[in-house]
């Protein structure tokens, strides 16, 4: 699939992040087309997660700007207004490595809370939608349970449902299977593949090279805060331009 004619949903323009004088992101630019699935790969410490978190401003970039649907997200990217932050985060969903479900709420409350507080749906509609999402990710039987009563794989699928409940235009996944055993991780990857096939726009930070190869439309390899290699999975995995890329891929495949 190519996206040359598709509309550009998200545009990240020279995103920079400096932590205590340490330059973690060295001006990363990226266009994300509607319906596209992007895999962010690279060695640990390359800045993948930081970059992802800059896209919904959980990390505030120290330079660069974001646009959604051609409109700048912030009037001043260095001084985000509260309303701009809320609107960005309501349009962009995020799934964390450690799930971060709310332990004091039941599974279904985890999914309905933000819908209701953000004025998206009424209580009844929110519950209907939550059940529908839970069915979609295959955890409907746990609706009334506490997160602590669910397995890790179930928790992560619930977290995906929670993020989807906001009707996001874009989903961010931060190493969604790294905290899971491989068998359970596959259930999560299956849900993500279904989402991708249904046309969800996704950016996935991952170490699952097979998932990146099969599901992603485009692979970005980050190294030391910048994009080292970019292209279709076939190109990046089979014909990398850089020596470092081959070495990284070799190291990952050997594991």
């Amino acid at each position: 699939m190519t996206f040359d004619n598709a509309r550009i949903l998200l545009q990240a323009d020279s995103i920079e992040k400096t932590f205590r004088g340490n330059r973690v992101l060295d001006g990363i630019s990226m266009d994300v087309h509607a319906g596209e699935v992007i895999a962010l790969i690279g060695p640990s410490g390359a800045g993948k997660s930081t970059f992802l978190r800059c896209l919904n401003y959980l990390e505030q970039p120290t330079g660069g700007s974001l646009s959604l649907d051609g409109e700048p997200v912030f009037a001043d990217p260095l001084k985000p207004a509260k309303s701009e932050l809320l609107s960005l985060r309501r349009r962009v969903g995020m799934v964390f490595q450690t799930f971060n479900l709310f332990p004091h709420l039941s599974v279904i409350e985890n999914i309905t809370m933000a819908q209701r507080l953000n004025g998206l749906r009424s209580r009844a509609d929110a519950e209907d939608y939550a059940l529908q999402l839970l069915t979609q990710v295959g955890v409907q039987q746990k609706a009334k349970a506490r997160p602590s009563e669910c397995s890790g794989g179930q928790q992560q699928r619930i977290a995906i449902a929670r993020a989807l409940s906001q009707d996001p235009e874009l989903m961010l996944f931060d190493e969604p299977t790294s905290a899971l055993d491989p068998e359970v991780g596959n259930d999560v990857l299956k849900v993500m593949r279904d989402l991708a096939e249904a046309g969800t726009t996704m950016i996935v930070v991952t170490h699952e090279m097979r998932f990146a190869e099969r599901v992603a439309d485009r692979v970005l390899l980050l190294d030391e805060g910048h994009i080292l290699e970019e292209g279709s999975p076939a190109r990046v995995f089979r014909h990398p331009e850089h020596e470092r890329t081959s070495r990284f891929l070799q190291a990952v495949l050997d594991r």
Binding site: N56, L58, K82, V92, G93, R162, A163
Partner: peptide
Amino acid sequence: VHTGQKEAAAALGLSSAH
């Protein structure tokens, strides 16, 4: 309270009060 909790709440677009 685990920092991930605040991040998850923020990522859902909840206001700071919520």
